[in-house]
């Protein structure tokens, strides 16, 4: 797991049509492979997490983050992408 190039994409905001499509579109466009998706809807709010492999991604993580954030602005939600290691270190001994 240590050497995997996996990122965690989090989407938070008001639910609407096309959020998953929008995020998945950006990832596909840059050759990031979606490994897992889970989501929950609390009242009208959406919390979605995607895990993606970026080892064959065509752009660097910084650029990918910018593209995702841009898509988030169009969709009216907040999208972050972070390297998985930061989460693993915090929650696993």
């Amino acid at each position: 797991m240590e050497n995997a190039q996996r990122i965690i994409v989090t989407v938070l905001g008001r639910d609407r049509v096309g959020i998953i499509a929008g995020v998945a579109g950006v990832l596909a466009e840059h050759n990031a492979n979606i490994l897992d998706v889970s989501q929950t809807i609390l009242q009208e709010f959406l919390a979605m997490i995607m895990i993606a492999d970026i080892s064959r991604c065509t752009v660097d993580l910084g650029t990918l983050k910018d593209r995702l954030a841009e898509a988030g602005r169009e969709l009216g939600v907040r999208i972050d992408a972070q390297h998985e290691d930061a989460f693993v270190c915090m929650h696993r001994i």
Binding site: I8, T10, L12, D36, S38, T40, A47, I49, D80, E84, A86, F87, V88, M90, H91
Partner: peptide
């Protein structure tokens, strides 16, 4: 594998 709530906790 990380749990959903763990990821959300870090983000929060």
């Amino acid at each position: 594998m990380l749990a959903f709530h763990e990821i959300l906790e870090s983000i929060q």
